[in-house]
């Protein structure tokens, strides 16, 4: 379902233009409102729909295989950490879904690696990445190597 924009709701803020991965939400120069300039390059990813503060964007199933008379609406609330969906079938059936989008306050639990103690030379020379070995198994276990796992590289072994 490529997207379209309701004329009376859009205020031309440009959030959808800023987010669309396909670069197809553009502001129309006459109406100063957004519209989808290339529906056949729309993935119906809903990034713009989720980003619109006015709920002005909706999607209508692709004309070549989706009959009219349906809707899939979404509300993404970052502060609540949830996303809710309402699916309306052509025949009127309705289904509602609610999912979490995060378990923690936004971005607060991602460490700023510039502030971490610098890695030692030993760490640099090892095969470890940041936070390893601890985070591999969340215990004292180390990294798997060919030796630790009893493996050898062999050329052209068939199986």
């Amino acid at each position: 379902m490529p997207t379209f924009v309701y004329m009376t709701r859009c205020d031309g803020c440009g959030h959808c233009v800023d987010i669309c991965p396909s670069d197809i939400m553009h502001i129309d120069t006459t109406t100063r409102r957004a519209y989808n300039i290339e529906p056949d390059m729309c993935w119906e990813c809903y990034s713009c729909v989720k980003a619109c503060p006015q709920n002005a964007i909706d999607a209508r199933g692709y004309a070549d295989f989706a009959p009219l008379g349906h809707s899939v609406r979404v509300l993404r609330e970052e502060d609540k950490g949830t996303i809710s969906w309402r699916i309306k079938f052509r025949n009127g059936t309705e289904k509602n879904f609610l999912s979490p989008i995060t378990t923690k306050p936004w971005g607060k639990h991602i460490p700023k690696l510039a502030d971490e103690p610098a890695p030692s030379q030993e760490m640099r020379d090892s095969e470890y990445l940041y936070s390893e070995p601890k985070y591999i198994r969340m215990d004292e276990g180390g990294l798997h190597t060919l030796e630790s796992n009893g493996l050898k590289m062999k050329e052209g072994v068939y199986y």
């Binding site: 999607a59 199933g61 295989f65 349906h70 899939v72 079938f89």
Partner: peptide, 18 residues
């Protein structure tokens, strides 16, 4: 939810075709 989480278009298609 599997669709709504990664391929919303499939949910739209099924809604439109009942």
């Amino acid at each position: 939810e599997n669709f709504l989480g990664m391929t919303i278009g499939q949910a739209v298609l099924w809604a439109s075709t009942d």
